[in-house]
């Protein structure tokens, strides 16, 4: 049970000040922009809720929102179990530990535009390994013209890029389980499944919450990688929310509309994340 002590606020104050500076001021600005037609800070007109009405009536918002949910769901369903399996398969001691840690983290360190470039090349049937293999075993694979292939490629790219994050988090969570737990399990002749279910999984709960939320939030605002890989196409098959925002607004430097879209976008993320977070932390109090 935690003690109630309001002096703990002093420990939180630096974080509060720092984040307030870089979050609250910009957020206020976005709200201000969203109800005006802005050309520059001195040339602006009050338009009220016009931008909101326009964006909410735009079918592109609903389309990309739906696509976004399906995509984020796929990402979670594939990456979280795979990440746990990889973390459980990590060597526990010896030279294998640093080697596999470094190799695992490689995809995370590639700048996001380069990630897109790598998969853009490797998926091409003339000069890329995967595209060439798929085509030579008789599959008609082309991510640039076939929406299904484009989807699969973006998804596999995401799995390649981010599963390591889940794995690394879970691995460090596993490392923080004291050895006595395993010794006790060995004395009790617990099965591997029992060890996982009753020792490892409960201890992983904290890091797993972080991993799931991070993957959800990041996949929900994915932009650079699919933009480089497919440019949102073919058609609008891989145009996700962030790209719709950029296309619709920033491309035309239409600040008011962009701000209104941003706020709607933010409200969607806020609601979904809140539901997620509440659902996952709710049994905390019961132990």
């Amino acid at each position: 049970m935690k003690t109630y002590n309001n002096k703990a606020w002093w420990l939180v104050l630096p974080v509060f000040a720092l984040v307030a500076f870089s979050a609250i001021i910009p957020m206020m600005t976005v709200v201000n922009y969203s109800i005006q037609d802005i050309f520059d800070p001195n040339t602006r007109y009050f338009v009220g809720t016009e931008w909101y009405r326009e964006i909410l009536a735009d079918p592109r918002l609903l389309d990309s929102l739906l696509r976004q949910f399906v995509y984020s769901l796929c990402v979670l369903v594939i990456e979280v179990p795979l990440g746990i399996i990889v973390a459980l398969s990590m060597p526990r001691r010896g030279l294998g530990v640093p080697v596999s840690l470094i190799l695992l983290s490689l995809p995370l360190l590639v700048p996001w535009n380069v990630v897109g470039t790598i998969w853009q090349i490797i998926g091409r049937e003339d000069i890329g390994l995967y595209g060439w293999i798929l085509n030579s075993i008789g599959l008609d694979y082309n991510y640039a013209s076939n929406p299904r292939d484009a989807w699969a490629t973006v998804l596999i790219m995401d799995v390649w890029h981010w599963t390591s994050l889940v794995a690394l988090l879970c691995y460090s969570g596993l490392r923080s389980i004291p050895d006595v737990y395993y010794q006790a399990a060995r004395i009790d002749r617990a099965s591997h499944w029992a060890v996982f279910r009753f020792i490892q999984l409960p201890k992983l709960k904290n890091v797993l919450l972080i991993a799931v939320m991070l993957r959800f939030m990041d996949s929900f605002m994915i932009y650079t990688e699919p933009f480089v890989l497919t440019g949102g196409g073919p058609g609008t098959a891989t145009t996700f929310l962030s790209q719709t925002l950029t296309q619709m607004a920033l491309g035309q430097f239409d600040l008011g509309r962009a701000a209104a879209f941003s706020l709607i976008y933010f409200l969607i993320i806020l609601l979904v994340t809140w539901v997620f977070y509440t659902a996952m932390t709710h049994n905390d109090d019961k132990g």
Partner: peptide, 15 residues
């Protein structure tokens, strides 16, 4: 503060 483009309704909202 000029660049924040304040308007009366948003100011009231945040207050």
């Amino acid at each position: 503060m000029g660049w924040m483009a304040w308007t009366l309704p948003t100011a009231l909202f945040f207050v």
